[in-house]
């Protein structure tokens, strides 16, 4: 069990809903992953269209919490208005705040992010900021009113896994009491297990599952990896050593020569 902003969640895996082969596979993947929170977005609806309604009714049938995002927003104004529109449609004050600063890397515009976060926190939102692993930016986000941080571990959709373990470790050490969720860049269950072993509270991923050959199987695999990583962190792992240490007792060994 995992307490996130006063809500008890069964799973430490947050799952995106984009790019699945079909709505049925999305639904099965959500169930197989064991996730308690899925991310959703808002996009233009066609005149007379019902695409949004069909998707929304599918998501509601899954019985999970909704974390709307501001994906694709490049300015403070866009992000703030999108967040307010999402709050009205989805009926939640949770918002995954994305303010994109670069088209190629999709890295956050951390200046716009902090400014947007301040506006939204003052307006009563629970802001989940998609940020980098920069400690100073993290401090500013907390000052702006965020109670949670979501650093990337590699560019969105890259599947590279944690490219800077030292920075993630440092972030965990600097903010021991802040829920930290690794968001973006995870490619394999072992990547998820790695960041969970570092003590991160949860992971958020999408493409690694939705673009797998078998998204349902991969969703289940990520669910297990997240659990395994968390339990390993909680259980106290052995530190690496430079010399061999026999695991079988040497006392009482037979002598044959």
């Amino acid at each position: 069990m995992f307490d996130l902003l006063g809500t008890t969640l069964a799973s430490r895996l947050l799952l995106g809903t984009a790019q699945y082969p079909s709505p049925a596979i999305l639904a099965d993947a959500v169930k197989a992953s064991g996730t308690s929170v899925v991310t959703v977005s808002l996009r233009r609806e066609m005149a007379g269209g019902r695409a949004g309604e069909q998707f929304w009714s599918l998501i509601r049938s899954l019985g999970v919490r909704i974390l709307p995002n501001t994906a694709g927003c490049h300015s403070v104004k866009e992000a703030v208005t999108t967040a307010k529109m999402a709050r009205e449609v989805f009926g939640t004050s949770w918002i995954k705040l994305e303010v994109i600063g670069n088209h190629d890397t999709l890295q956050p515009d951390v200046f716009g992010l902090v400014e947007s976060a301040r506006i939204l926190c003052e307006d009563g939102f629970a802001v989940f900021p998609y940020t980098t692993d920069d400690l100073v930016v993290a401090e500013r986000l907390l000052e702006a009113g965020c109670e949670i941080l979501m650093p990337w571990c590699a560019p969105i959709g890259s599947a590279l896994g944690p490219v800077n373990i030292t920075a993630l470790r440092s972030m965990r050490g600097h903010f021991p009491g802040v829920p930290l969720i690794v968001d973006a860049g995870l490619g394999r269950p072992s990547h998820a297990a790695t960041v969970m072993e570092l003590g991160f509270d949860a992971v958020l991923l999408n493409t690694a599952v939705s673009k797998a050959a078998d998204p349902v199987g991969m969703a289940r695999a990520f669910g297990k990896a997240v659990e395994a990583g968390r339990e390993a962190f909680s259980s106290g792992m052995l530190e690496p050593r430079d010399v061999a240490v026999p695991s079988t007792p040497t006392i009482g060994r037979a002598v044959f020569s």
Binding site: V40, S41, R44, M85, E88
Partner: peptide, 27 residues
Amino acid sequence: LVHKANRAEFQLSDGDRIEILSPMQGG
């Protein structure tokens, strides 16, 4: 944002830019 409850009374002006959004898949 124009709240759902305010749409009936919200007067449009020439040149206004309107966005109409609905739930969609997201990561």
